[in-house]
C-alpha cells in the first residue's frame, strides 16, 4: 500500500494550529469578542489595502449596504496594544471576517469561541478516557459477571444513535442555565454517552494482555491487582486510547455545535462555534452574509485535520 505520511503530518499541523489559536486568542483577536459596533451590523469583511483600510459607512440599513469612506484611511497596526493586528482607531474596527447581527467581530468571536468549543471537547474527551479506561480495565482484569454485564451494556449503548441520547439527556435538564453549568453538564453528558465505547476496547486489550507471562510474574512478585492494572497493563492500551481520543474530539465539537444550534447548548451571549452557527441559522440572512458561516469552516478544518491523521495512519474512518 502506498504511504500517505504527509496527510498525517498536515493533519497534525492543522490541529496544532487550532490549539495555538485557542491558547493565543486574546493576542490574535483584534477586538473584544462581545464588543458591539452599532454602525457595523452585518458588515462585510474589511478589505485591507496594504497597510491601511477604509472604514465603512452604512448607506442603507434595510439592504445592509455599506460604502468605504475613501477620504479617511485608517492604518493597520501590527504588534500593537497586545494584539497581533488591530485597527489604529478603536472606533473603526478591523473586521477580518465581517460582523454579525449585533455588530460583533466574527473573527474575534471565532478565535475566542475556539476556547469554549475545544476546551469542552478536550475535557469531555479526557473524562471519557479516564472513565472508560477504569471501567474497561476492571472488567477486563476481573472477567466473569462484571465483564458480562459491562459488555452487554456497552453493546446496547453502542447501538443507540448518540446524538439522540445526548439530546434527550440535555433536554430533560432545566433548559436555561448559566454558561458554567452548561459547560459542566455537557462534559458530563458527553462522557456518560461515550465511555462504553472506550471501555469496550480497553476491556478487550486488558483481557488478552492479562494472560501474558509478565503479568503472572508481577502477580508472583506480590503486586496488587490495582498496581498491576494501573502500572503494567494500562500502557498496553495507550495506542488504542490515543486513537479514540482523536476520534472523540471532533465528535464532541460537533455535538456542542449541534446542541447550541438547536438552542440546547450555551446561551447565545457566550461565543462558541455552536452559538455562532445558531446566529447564522437565519436562512435569508446567511444568503447575503456568508461570512456568518465562518464557524462551520472552523469545524470543518478540525474534522478534516482529524480525518487526515486517521487516513495517514491507514485506519478506517469512523461511521458517525
Amino acid at each position: 500500500m502506498r504511504s500517505w505520511k504527509w496527510e498525517a503530518t498536515a493533519g497534525r499541523a492543522l490541529l496544532i494550529l487550532v490549539v495555538f489559536v485557542a491558547v493565543a486568542a486574546p493576542w490574535l483577536a483584534p477586538n473584544p469578542p462581545d464588543r458591539q459596533f452599532d454602525a457595523y451590523l452585518y458588515a462585510p469583511p474589511t478589505r485591507i489595502h496594504g497597510t491601511y483600510f477604509y472604514p465603512l459607512r452604512l448607506i442603507s440599513r434595510l439592504e445592509r449596504r455599506f460604502e468605504e469612506v475613501r477620504e479617511r484611511p485608517v492604518s493597520v497596526r501590527w504588534f500593537g496594544a497586545g494584539h497581533l493586528v488591530s485597527s489604529a482607531d478603536p472606533n473603526d474596527p478591523l473586521l477580518l471576517l465581517g460582523a454579525d447581527s449585533y455588530g460583533r467581530d466574527i473573527f474575534s468571536r471565532l478565535v475566542y469561541g475556539s476556547r469554549a468549543s475545544l476546551g469542552l471537547a478536550a475535557l469531555a474527551t479526557l473524562a471519557t478516557m479516564i472513565f472508560g479506561a477504569v471501567v474497561g480495565g476492571i472488567a477486563g482484569y476481573a472477567g466473569g459477571a462484571i465483564d458480562e454485564i459491562l459488555s452487554r451494556f456497552s453493546d446496547f449503548v453502542l447501538v443507540l444513535p448518540a446524538i439522540y441520547v445526548v439530546l434527550a439527556l440535555r433536554a430533560v435538564m432545566p433548559l436555561v442555565l448559566p454558561p458554567g453549568q452548561v459547560f459542566a453538564l455537557l462534559v458530563g453528558i458527553f462522557a456518560l454517552v461515550s465511555w462504553p465505547v472506550v471501555a469496550r476496547g480497553v476491556r478487550g486489550i486488558i483481557a488478552s494482555e492479562r494472560e501474558r507471562e509478565y503479568v503472572t510474574a508481577g502477580r508472583a512478585a506480590g503486586a496488587s491487582p490495582m498496581r498491576l492494572l494501573a502500572v503494567h497493563l494500562m500502557p498496553a492500551a495507550r495506542g488504542y486510547l490515543t486513537t479514540q481520543a482523536t476520534l472523540l474530539l471532533p465528535a464532541f465539537i460537533l455535538a456542542e455545535a449541534t446542541l447550541s444550534y438547536v438552542g440546547l447548548g450555551f446561551p447565545t451571549s457566550v461565543p462558541t462555534w455552536g452559538t455562532m452557527l445558531y446566529d447564522a441559522s437565519n436562512v435569508a440572512l446567511v444568503g447575503e452574509a456568508p461570512w456568518m458561516l465562518a464557524p462551520a469552516a472552523a469545524i470543518f478544518l478540525v474534522v478534516l485535520a482529524v480525518n487526515l491523521v486517521v487516513q495517514g495512519s491507514g485506519r478506517p474512518p469512523l461511521v458517525r
Binding site: A280, L304, Q311
Partner: peptide, 29 residues
C-alpha cells in the same frame, strides 16, 4: 472523499441551504 468526510450532516445541510438560498435552484427548506 476526504473533504466530504469532514463535512458532517450539520455542516453539509447548512452549506446546501446557503447554496440553495443563494442560487434558488432548489427550495431551501
Amino acid at each position: 472523499s476526504l473533504v466530504c468526510l469532514s463535512i458532517p450532516p450539520l455542516l453539509a445541510s447548512l452549506l446546501l441551504v446557503f447554496l440553495a438560498s443563494r442560487t434558488g435552484w432548489l427550495p431551501s427548506g
